[in-house]
Amino acid sequence: MRKKLSAALSAAEQIRDQFFPEASACLLAGSVVRGDATAYSDLDLVVVYERVENAQRQSFVFGDWPVEAFIHDPQTLEFFFREVDRPSGVPSLPNMVSEGIEIPRETKCGRLVKDLASRILEEGPIEWGQKERENSRYAISDMVEDIREPRNIAELRIVISNLYSAIANHFLRSQNQWSAKGKSIPRRLMSVNPEVHKRFAEAFEAAFTRDDTTDVIQLCEHVLEPDGGFLFQGYTRDAPKEWRMPDA
């Protein structure tokens, strides 16, 4: 049974009043706002003060609700947007702010951070360079070799699980699209390219239910082809020069 938005809004307003009464803005985000919450979904809150000593994440239970509160001020939010989420390619915090419902009402601070989140989402992630593309190609190529002739089913399924995230990330980032992680990946693929989402779903369904990796391997070939396909021969990766113990 899905948790109703009205109940979530009521709980979020109580939490704001009880725990964050001095906040300049408080936004409810996550699955309850998107409309895909389950009976076990939590409340995601972005709480914005005029200034905090440092950004913070708090986890607690309020009534029947697990709560994840992300405490920020406008400057720490912008830092996370630009220095954490854009380089990672996964816009977790900008999405929360952009989609969030401000409680109990809109504020100037709320409009400010929402406008900032929208600008960041429009800018997109930091564009991949050749090094990032080659690192991703090599990692995927290595995993594909592991599933061509796996030693056992347990290893096969672990590698397939890792490959799902890796190939989805390559597909999205190589097109300068925002990526996703975990359970958000199918939703992101669907929003970017429904046909590719369908191909992912069918390929990995066959791999997980029948241990048939044929379509997964073909999918990897298809996704990597624009960047040069599978990569092993000639691949190099330099460790930072400072990664050494000092001379005795």
Rank of each mutant, 00 (worst) to 15 (best):
A37G: 13
D238F: 15
L231T: 09
D146V: 13
D238P: 02
R188W: 06
A206E: 10
P240A: 15
V159T: 10
S179I: 04
R34M: 02
D142F: 07
I147L: 05
M96N: 04
P125Q: 10
L28C: 10
F20R: 04
D212L: 08
M245Y: 12
R105A: 08
R157F: 12
V159H: 01
G35D: 01
F232A: 02
E132S: 04
S92I: 03
F62M: 02
A37I: 07
E123G: 09
D44K: 00
A25C: 06
M245C: 02
V113Y: 07
T209A: 15
V46I: 06
P94R: 11
I120S: 01
S191M: 08
W178C: 00
I140S: 03
V159F: 05
G228S: 12
A8E: 00
I185Q: 07
Y235G: 07
E53Y: 13
G228T: 09
V67Y: 09
E242S: 08
I167C: 05
I15N: 04
S41M: 07
R105V: 00
R173D: 03
N95G: 10
H222A: 14
I217C: 05
C26H: 03
Q233R: 09
G234C: 01
E134F: 06
K183S: 14
M96Y: 07
E195R: 10
A207M: 00
P125S: 12
D17N: 13
N169Q: 07
F171G: 03
E225K: 15
D227L: 09
N135V: 11
P194I: 11
E205K: 05
A23P: 03
L43I: 10
R86F: 10
H170E: 10
D73E: 07
P186K: 06
W128G: 04
F81L: 06
